[in-house]
Design a binder for these strands. Structure first.
Lengths: 360, 360
DNA sequence: CTGAAAGCGCTTACAG
DNA sequence: CTGAAAGCGCTTACAG
């Protein structure tokens, strides 16, 4: 029989012993983390009482609750989200689906959502769809099994399968950026049509007569702005379908510049352009500067959203300030109510604002 | 006794009956989802065999595995991530911590990370720190208990507590955007110092002698670029500390414009400005246009990162194209290897590129 | 108000 | 290669 043990072996031996003494019942599979049971033992109550106290259920004696909280604090107890999700069939994550992160609009939206949800114990889980319904579906298929506590999605345009996944999940869902009158639908948005109409009207009021509409991406909200443009110009007797330039390409400053040059050439008599988004408007403005085209002298330029930099352009860009932060905040707040079962789905329509600057 | 039952009551009655007939053993707490046990029953094997087959463990007879896969497909089985995470002590989410979403740099990084991780079965979980170490710590405290499979963090600058949380978690972690020689550290970045030096050298080579450095945000990477600027100018005998304009404010086009105007006034003899980021550089460029200051005639302007729009400026902006997508891809790939235990932590240094345009 | 029991749906650790 | 048992750390559903 070998008597000498190596230090390493002794170390392991003593560690094992120590562990055993402190925690005689720690199983081989234990993760080592402090559990509800540990807190219960320390507080001298049952685990379920700890669970209730920590979740703030009021059916717990205040004195007991206090003892539990103290024990939890002392032991540095942190609930295991996976165990919680498994037992309750609900996680504390909120899936937020946006089309793009490269559009500052959605970054502002996400900021507001985070600021609203996170302090209330819910964590936004960001999914980017790239304006692709197949991607959105895949995200839903991937994340719905995680049983998110809530869902925040952009607009109403999605595949039938995605729609059914949403409905079938039973997870509270708020639609952002657009409004709908469909009963039972929760949404927070503003009138894209109205905003498109408003900025077009501004151009008309400035005395412009050949007002073009230039759009990229062509998502539903862009098309609604187009509708507002048409409405306004029809009413003014100025509508000419040839002045609509629609590109399915991804929106960007470079694209805006290119489209601006095209339009100047193909439609030499236009005296104003309403760009569906500030980034292509900024590109158009810069192209004008490059080409020596006077803005607003020769041509007026208007954008949409009031993104970063629009106020810095030369001349500064007239645009519509969209309430995306408010949409994020109000949408998240509504979701909070729905998740708590405090309110029924409803629809909130927020205001936009016409911001007149030097480009018109 | 009342004989007549309302339709509603009968509906409920029959529903319950149907459910009972189909699923005699479904417990009261069942979530209704198809489980491993259902697949096992359908395939005529034990649940553990299903688990192994579905995870692709090779210690399963190919025939059995095939039968399992078929059954799973037919039943539309989707594993429960919470149960999986609880049993295995590891989720499939990868926590990604970035300072800001409003800097396009990090959006590009996140895109690349998502494209690399998602197809491999891992889901990025985005956390935004706002360059605030307390926020980063809070995010870590919130998300680490979820037992992410991996961690992707920006740079090395964090609180001691955050550092210990990272180290203590035992979760594989890759640091992005900076490099380090510390042993055992995994990182993917590029030389911020070198890049700052390179663009300053370009200005020197263009014949500029009073070259200013203008920075905002002042995060570690910005300061490293400043160091590159100094190194270059010292070597050229052109360094003058009065030409460093450092603002702790958040970087933006508006701030760039303001700082540009200040500098022109306070430092009338400067003939070039190296802005630490393209957004303030763009702001400076636009301010120059507004003020009628000739670029590069009177003053040369250079930026950093090559963000969207820099090529559209008038004149287009000279800058450093940073490899953020490559950093994201390579970082995520390295993390994948670490999570699979296929590789040891190491450090990858990528290349940047000087992009000379009209502004210098 | 409190608790013992059972269960959520997986995987680990042993056996064979 | 396959499986029965136990366990991951919580909450639900009953009882009292």
């Amino acid at each position: 029989m070998k008597i000498a043990l190596s230090y390493a072996t002794m170390g392991i031996f003593f560690c094992g012993l120590t562990l055993t003494l402190i925690n005689p019942r720690r199983s081989r599979r234990s993760s080592g983390r402090t559990t509800l049971a540990d807190v219960a033992a320390a507080a001298g109550v049952s685990p379920i009482t700890v669970s209730r106290a920590l979740r703030g259920e009021r059916s717990v004696d205040p004195q007991l609750a206090e003892r539990v909280h103290q024990a939890a604090r002392q032991l540095g107890y942190v609930p295991d989200p996976a165990a919680r999700a498994l037992a309750s069939q609900r996680s504390t994550q909120v899936l937020v689906l946006v089309p793009l992160l490269s559009n500052a609009l959605f970054v502002d939206l996400l900021e507001a959502v985070h600021r609203t949800l996170f302090p209330q114990g819910f964590q936004p889980l960001i999914g980017v769809t790239h304006y692709d319904s197949a991607e959105e579906e895949l995200l839903l298929r991937t994340y719905l099994p995680h049983r998110p506590a809530g869902l925040l999605v952009t607009g109403f345009d999605r595949s039938e399968d995605a729609r059914q996944l949403l409905a079938g999940s039973g997870v509270p869902c708020v639609h952002l950026m657009e409004t709908s009158t469909a009963p039972g639908t929760a949404c927070v948005g503003f009138s894209q049509v109205g905003a498109g109409e408003a900025i077009t009207r501004h151009l008309v009021e400035r005395g412009r007569r050949r007002i073009a509409f230039c759009a990229a991406q062509l998502d539903p909200r862009v098309l609604q702005r187009a509708e507002g443009y048409r409405r306004c110009l029809r009413a003014a007797g100025l509508y000419d379908p040839r002045l609509e330039v629609l590109s399915a390409e991804r929106s960007s400053m470079a694209l805006g510049a290119r489209l601006f040059e095209d339009m100047l050439q193909r439609l030499p008599d236009i005296d104003a352009i309403f760009f569906c988004n500030d980034d292509i408007a900024q590109g158009g403005l810069l192209a004008a500067a490059r080409l020596g085209v006077a803005v607003p002298g020769r041509i007026a330029i208007a954008g949409f959203n009031d993104l970063a930099g629009s106020d810095q352009m030369v001349p500064p860009l007239t645009t519509i300030r969209t309430p995306r932060s408010e949409v994020g905040r109000a949408g998240a707040t509504m979701l909070l109510e729905l998740m708590r079962g405090e309110a029924a789905p409803r629809c909130i329509e927020l205001d936009y604002e016409l911001v007149v600057r030097g480009s018109t």
